[in-house]
Nucleic acid binder design. Structure first.
Lengths: 223, 223
DNA sequence: AGTTCATTCCAACAATTATTAGAATAACAA
DNA sequence: TTGTTATTCTAATAATTGTTGGAATGAACT
């Protein structure tokens, strides 16, 4: 390689990362994987893609070495290659939020409920949840809750929420959370809860943000 | 927007960043801009692209809000939108170095001379340069040196090196540096120097890396 | 061995992006 | 004004990527 080719090679290698994160669908897959390892089938379901298309995008991500696979019986289980990938995903998200006003505005308009809660630190929220002053609910799918969740949180996946309203108290504040500040499931939950007369708000941050702060999460198989 | 469209919107916005950094040429432009603001013309020259193509890629970067422009007479001067963009560029580069062995191997093979120097901290190198124990030379183009350079360094652009060998001592070690660990100009310089019997090595890091550590650089108009 | 099922490969087309050439704009200089 | 230079815009084509359907692979279970 002459110095010309070598220089091009350098930028090409770095662009491998860029290409991998240049597609909305692939970012969605990374987001899903940041919440825990998953099979192709499950990711296809969650992201409303065909299995084939999901597989194609995952191939691209594997080529860029952002994800890894392992076999479990008939299934191929995908996961992020390492913590740096979570960090990359978070940085891209944060950068988009800073640079694009239309993005952060949309997130805010869409019911990211900013009130007292958003100014509390994670620790404070966990303490309140421990003391029973608030109810902290994790609205992500059950498998993601199992892979890692906030302390003192209970799992009520968004799709089950309407059925399980009777489990929730009317007199306490209900705090919801999901994957992160970009994730809108917690907003949906707040909308539903407020409509039925509950006191509800969402945590601005979610699981990914907590990973970013180097905190570890509780794992469990059920709850 | 329904929740489906909204979710897609979120990932699309983040993918704007990804798209911007998915092309080797655009990464090269970001790299150039990380060394100081530049006109379209100059960037086209440095990157061996046509002015038109350079302009087209810059348009893309502007659309993603990674770069900004200002007018200076007839010229349009481009610069990175903020420090976060430098940080992004560095993170992508570091990630590529970690994930792709063929990348880091190539960098090493191509004469990134790893010896005593690479284990010295920046501070130590600067002190040695100050005391005259080593000669620290910046092989980047003159304008980039002027925009910010290491303390106690002198500017000898790579293209002038052969003409200016008489300025350099044979008995002292000559340490070269350029943009960063991915930049190969310092390697070229070391090759040239060693061939002529000088004691030479390169700093593993370069200017971008120092920015990443939050250190500030000296600016000057000449030297 | 045969069956099942998840996943990948292959081929085709649609959609997007990269690149080049020529025209248009905008600032400066005379 | 006119001419000059830098830059961007428009249009066209080449190259790449996204997407879908059908066939093939390959591991696990019976």
């Amino acid at each position: 390689m002459n110095s010309h080719e070598l220089r091009d090679f350098v930028y090409q290698q770095i662009a491998r990362i860029g290409k991998a994160v240049s597609s909305p669908k692939r970012l969605e897959l990374l987001d899903l994987l940041s919440q825990g390892e998953k099979t192709v089938e499950l990711m296809a379901l969650r992201s409303d893609m065909s299995v084939k298309l999901t597989s194609a995008h995952l191939k691209e991500l594997r080529h860029a070495k952002l994800v890894e696979t392992r076999k479990d019986g008939k299934y191929v289980v995908y996961s992020l290659a390492n913590e740096d990938i979570t960090a990359l995903w978070l940085r891209l998200r944060a950068l988009a939020e800073n640079q694009y006003k239309e993005f952060s505005n949309t997130l805010n308009e869409q019911g990211r409920v900013v009130d007292d809660t958003s100014t509390l630190s994670f620790d404070q929220v966990f303490k309140k949840a421990k003391r029973g002053e608030i109810v902290l609910i994790d609205v992500r799918p059950r498998d993601e809750f199992a892979a890692g969740h906030f302390p003192f949180a209970q799992s009520i996946p968004l799709e089950d929420l309407k059925k399980r309203l009777s489990e929730l108290p009317k007199n306490k504040e209900i705090i919801t959370y999901c994957r992160g500040s970009h994730c809108l499931q917690a907003n949906e939950a707040v909308k539903i809860l407020k409509k039925r007369g509950f006191k509800a708000a969402r945590l601005k941050e979610g699981v990914t943000d907590l990973y970013a702060q180097g905190l570890s999460l509780e794992k469990s198989t059920s709850r």
